[in-house]
């Protein structure tokens, strides 16, 4: 099976997927084929860092510092969010 991820995984938005600020709904969204995913601030911050260069560990560390949260908890949250996006075919890992 494809798509199992770890702290060393380097996620990137899949081709054709775009992050967009929607002025009408005053919200960040992920624009994907046939669907729109509304992003909360955390989700938006994670996707912003899915640049194909940073690992999940690096993304988690950056966010833990930014929000002054427990790094282990942040890494668990980031991992499950990226896994979900990967399963939906929106992020490559």
């Amino acid at each position: 099976m494809n798509g199992a991820i770890s702290a060393q995984t380097i996620p990137a938005l899949r081709r054709g997927i775009r992050r967009h600020y929607d002025a009408t709904r005053e919200q960040n969204v992920l624009l994907c084929p046939e669907r729109v995913i509304l992003l909360d601030d955390i989700g938006n911050s994670i996707i912003e860092l899915c640049d194909g260069e940073r690992s999940i560990a690096a993304i988690s560390l950056a966010l833990a510092e930014r929000y002054a949260e427990d790094p282990a908890q942040v890494e668990a949250d980031v991992t499950s969010f990226v896994q979900e996006l990967s399963d939906k075919g929106l992020v490559t890992v």
């Binding site: 099976m1 494809n2 798509g3 199992a4 046939e34 990967s86 399963d87 939906k88 075919g89 890992v93």
Partner: peptide
């Protein structure tokens, strides 16, 4: 679907 998870999404 299970086999292609993460590589090709199937609707």
């Amino acid at each position: 679907r299970e086999k292609r998870r993460g590589s090709m999404a199937i609707d």
